[in-house]
Design a protein around this nucleic acid. Structure first.
Lengths: 131, 131
DNA sequence: TGACACCTGCTACATCTGTAGTAGAATACT
DNA sequence: AGTATTCTACTACAGATGTAGCAGGTGTCA
């Protein structure tokens, strides 16, 4: 499920706290985003339409909650990036990321740890789950 | 500079080999992509318009070459992913990626090597070049 | 019981995207 | 030179996106 930018914004707020009504989400819009209430509403409705979100009625008031998980959304986004920017090759993408200047020494150490552990625990599993 | 999907496709072909004319690019479209020649042309022209590509005329025939580098494009794409899907936090994104099932043991080892070397060579430089 | 606040569904609309068609100029072949 | 080929510029157009307005229903408080 591909999300557009306003959809990510709304989904992020929803994942953070749900169920939530349109007003509640509207009020949690981050500093710097000054949308009309109806923009939030429209985005929410489009998300319902594409089944990323479910809407329940409590009286005449609608409450929204995510159907799509954050993890799924992230996976999809990464897969898309991978496909068009790195020709689908995971290794080169990781390489590129690891080269990033902004990856601080602390993060590097942390990452090495994560990777070493994975390496130990999974050995040569190498599941081709993807695509 | 944000690229759309057809733009990525064309840019990938251009980076691979340039300068190139529209026909040449058209002929190198990957299997599975069956666009009309004019679609390639339009996409190319839109890229020129947004200054991701430069067009030179040789006689009346146009040759195209990238202005935007692949690296820049990748960086931008990653930054965008980072911002909407991971709230701008590099660490969590790397974490998420490192957890990915599809990262084979071989890749993990390679990555660890890259990271270790970076760690040695840069120490605590931690340059905030970005944004 | 009316005035106000707030919600909902529906509509709007400019811009961007994806994909292509057409006409006329330049080139190339015979 | 005439005809086929191939470019280029320009135009088209439906669907997605970003952003929002409006009208009418509902709750609520004096």
């Amino acid at each position: 499920m591909k999300l557009t930018e306003p959809e990510w914004l709304i989904m992020n707020l929803l994942w953070e706290k749900y169920p939530a009504n349109a007003r509640g989400i509207f009020e949690r819009l981050p500093r710097g985003i000054s949308w009309a209430y109806t923009t939030v509403k429209t985005t929410l409705d489009r998300l319902v339409e594409k089944k990323a979100v479910r809407k329940k009625k409590d009286g005449h008031i609608g409450y929204y909650e995510p159907l799509l998980t954050r993890k799924q959304a992230r996976s999809t986004a990464i897969k898309m990036l991978l496909n068009h920017a790195f020709d689908g090759a995971f290794g080169p993408m990781m390489h590129f990321l690891a080269e990033d200047e902004n990856l601080s020494s602390k993060h590097r150490k942390e990452l090495i740890k994560i990777l070493s552990e994975k390496d130990k625990s999974k050995g040569e599993k190498n599941g081709r789950t993807n695509q």
